[in-house]
């Protein structure tokens, strides 16, 4: 199976190709501002380097969220159009699960988290590939309480720059052994997305949307003001 994977969920853009269980291309451009400009040329570079064409790809995989809203849409729009037009599989992989995989060899509880500002995180906790705390949007204190209640003694944090929260984290997880991933282990890598995509079930490109884990502020404000429930997103769009 040939998998082309991409990650645009964080500021690091990456594309990987995995052929029959082997990673044959993986490239990351760190701290990029404009994934929309750089993604397609990077895909073309990967195809050229591996001698593959898009038609030869069996599966298009993408980090589907959480992450930067605009970034997620750049990757997913590209992946779902490719899958839809070429009639191939589309697979969406949790950004946090792919991040956690960076530290999976260490036999600890891996907390993958992306800073969502104001002491909030998009986070999930994984034992290997098993999600123990579901991907969600958590206030730091709540997240730490949930982790503290788990039996795991060793906890590794990966994903964001945790230095400014290090004291609060260690205090909240008193009695546990807490470490923070270093260097590239904190970065979302398309190679991990491809690895997880190998066994994941494909999704329908027409139904696929990013896993934002948050509604927009405008929607929350509207709900607060009107007390109304949200309809399905598709109910708000009409073909005319």
């Amino acid at each position: 199976m040939k998998i082309l994977s991409m990650s645009t969920a964080t500021s690091d853009l990456s594309v990987a190709i995995r052929q029959d269980g082997q990673l044959t291309f993986a490239k990351m451009e760190k701290n990029q501002r404009n994934h929309s400009v750089d993604l397609d040329p990077l895909i073309e570079e990967g195809l050229k380097e591996t001698g593959l064409t898009l038609k030869a790809i069996d599966r298009f995989a993408v980090a589907i969220g959480p992450g930067s809203y605009t970034g997620l849409r750049v990757g997913l729009t590209t992946a779902k159009m490719l899958a839809s037009i070429l009639g191939k599989d589309l697979v969406g992989v949790s950004t946090l699960k792919a991040l956690a995989l960076n530290c999976a060899g260490r036999n600890a509880l891996v907390v993958a988290a992306l800073d969502a500002r104001n002491q909030n995180f998009f986070a999930g906790a994984y034992r290997g590939q098993e999600a123990v705390i579901e991907d969600g949007h958590y206030a730091l204190g709540d997240l730490l309480d949930q982790i503290q209640a788990l039996p795991d003694q060793e906890v590794i944090f990966t994903g964001s720059d945790f230095t400014k929260y290090a004291d609060a984290i260690k205090e909240g997880l008193a009695g546990k052994q807490v470490t923070f991933a270093e260097g590239d282990d904190n970065l979302l890598q398309a190679g991990q997305v491809a690895l997880l995509a190998e066994k994941a079930a494909p999704i329908d490109p027409d139904q696929a949307v990013p896993n934002y884990l948050r509604r927009t502020q405008a929607e929350y404000d509207w709900q607060k003001k009107t007390g109304q429930a949200f309809e399905a997103d598709s109910a708000y769009v009409e073909e005319v």
Partner: peptide
């Protein structure tokens, strides 16, 4: 933006 991506392939 969220609505655009919902319908684009369809």
């Amino acid at each position: 933006s969220r609505h655009h991506i919902e319908v684009i392939t369809q």
